[in-house]
Write a protein that binds this DNA or RNA. Structure first.
Lengths: 220, 220
DNA sequence: GTCTATAGGCTGATAGAC
DNA sequence: GTCTATCAGCCTATAGAC
C-alpha cells in the first residue's frame, strides 16, 4: 500500500501516518483500527506512531485537529462572502461537498465522534465545531430578514442540511461496494449532481413564499 | 444497571443482552464494545453471550436483524397506504422519526455498518435494506406522475431525506451531553418539531411548480 | 441455564541496537 | 529517526461445576 517510493524524510513519515490513520479510523473507527494496520498502510514502522504522535491516541487527536483545520479553510470563502443569502447558502453547499470530495474520511471521523457522544472533543475542538452551525444560522437569519427565506428553526435547518451531506459521505463506501457488485437498485448520484440536488432542495424548501418577492429560478 | 429485578427466565436474559448490546454497539461500535460491558449492562453473565448467541458476532448479527425487523414493522402503514403521494411522504417522515424515538440505537448501528462499507450485511440483510429506498422511490414516482412532485433523482432524494433524519439521530448523544452542560449555541429541536421541519422542508423542496396545480398549504 | 476459572490470541507500547 | 524483539494487559471463548 501507500507510496512505492522509499522515504527517509521524517515529515513524510508523519504525513503518511496521518493519511493512513484518517483512512482507517474513518472506515473502522478508533477501536477497530490497529497501530499495526496504520503503520503498514503508511509504509512506516509501528514504533513511529509513538515517536511522532506519542501513541495511538495522540495520532487520533492529530487527525481530528486536521479535520477541523481543513474544514475551516474550505469554508472561509463563505464566511467572508458578501453575496445574497441564497447565493451564500448555495456556496456553503458547494464548498461542503467539495470538502467531502477532497477529504472523504473527515466527515466520517467527526460523525463517529458525535455518535460516541463527543467525548474526545474537549473545549476548543468542540467550540470550533459550532462554527459550522453559526455560519449556517447567520446565512438563514440574513435571508429571513431580507425576505428570501421563511422562518425556520436554525438548529433544525442546520441538522437537516449538514445531515443530508454527511450521510451522503458516510454511505459512500457501501454505495461504491454495492455499485461494483452491480447490486444497487438505482444508479448512485455523482458528487456534483448530489450537490445540485441538495442546493435545489434547500433553496426551494427554505425560501419564503411572500407573494411580492421575485421568485427567480434557482437553476444556474 | 439494567433491571433491578432478579430474573431466571432465559428469554429475559436473551432480551436483556439484546437491549444492552444495541445500546453499547450504537455508542461505541463493534470493536469498542466488550462482551464484559454488555453482560454487566444486561445484568447477565458473560458466558451467556456464547450460550444464547454463539458469541459476540452472533449477538451483533441478532441486533442487526432486530433493527431491520423493527423498521419493517414501523413502516408497514406507509407501504399499504393508499393516500396521496404527499401525504404518504409526510407519513414516511413521521413514522421514521417515531422509529428513531422508539429505537434510538438502531439508526446508529446501521449507519456504522454503512460507514464500514456494509461488509457484515450479506445477502438477505442488505436486500431488506433496499426496501427503504424502494418505498421512498415509489412515493416520489407516484407524486411525479400525478404532478405533485417535480422530477428529481430518486436516489439523491432518498439520501437527503433519510440522511437528514439519521444524522439527527446520530448526533443526539452529543447534543444531549452538550445541552446538559449548557454549552449548546442554540436550543436543540424536539423529535416532533424536527419531524415537522423535515416534512415541511421536503414537501416544499420536492413539490412541482406546475402553475395549474393546487398548492395547498402543508401545515396541518 | 447459569456461573467461575482459565486458556489463548491479539494489541499497544517501548527498550535498545543501528 | 528508524527498526526489531519483546512484554504486559486486555479480550473472547470455553470447559466444567452447579
Amino acid at each position: 500500500m501507500a507510496l512505492p517510493t522509499r522515504k527517509r524524510d521524517p515529515e513524510a513519515t508523519r504525513r503518511s501516518l496521518l493519511r493512513a490513520a484518517a483512512a482507517l479510523f474513518s472506515r473502522n473507527g478508533y477501536d477497530g483500527t490497529t497501530t499495526d494496520a496504520m503503520a503498514t498502510e503508511a509504509g512506516a514502522n509501528k514504533a513511529m506512531i509513538s515517536y511522532h504522535f506519542g501513541g495511538k491516541k495522540g495520532l487520533y487527536t492529530a487527525v481530528l485537529a486536521e479535520c477541523l483545520d481543513a474544514s475551516d479553510l474550505v469554508l472561509e470563502p463563505v464566511r467572508s462572502s458578501s453575496s445574497s443569502s441564497d447565493e451564500r447558502l448555495g456556496q456553503f453547499i458547494e464548498l461542503f461537498m467539495e470538502f467531502i470530495a477532497r477529504h472523504p474520511h473527515f466527515p466520517l471521523i467527526v460523525l463517529r465522534e458525535q455518535m460516541a457522544g463527543g467525548v474526545h472533543l474537549e473545549g476548543e475542538l468542540q467550540e470550533r465545531f459550532f462554527g459550522f452551525f453559526r455560519l449556517v444560522r447567520s446565512i438563514l437569519e440574513d435571508g429571513r430578514r431580507d425576505g428570501t427565506f421563511r422562518d425556520v428553526d436554525p438548529h433544525a435547518a442546520h441538522l437537516s442540511l449538514v445531515g443530508s451531506m454527511v450521510f451522503y459521505a458516510a454511505t459512500r463506501n457501501a454505495r461504491r461496494r454495492l455499485s461494483r457488485k452491480g447490486k444497487l437498485p438505482a444508479p448512485a448520484p455523482e458528487d456534483r449532481a448530489y450537490a445540485r440536488h441538495v442546493r435545489e432542495l434547500f433553496l426551494r424548501g427554505l425560501r419564503s413564499e411572500l407573494p411580492g418577492k421575485k421568485r427567480r429560478g434557482t437553476k444556474p
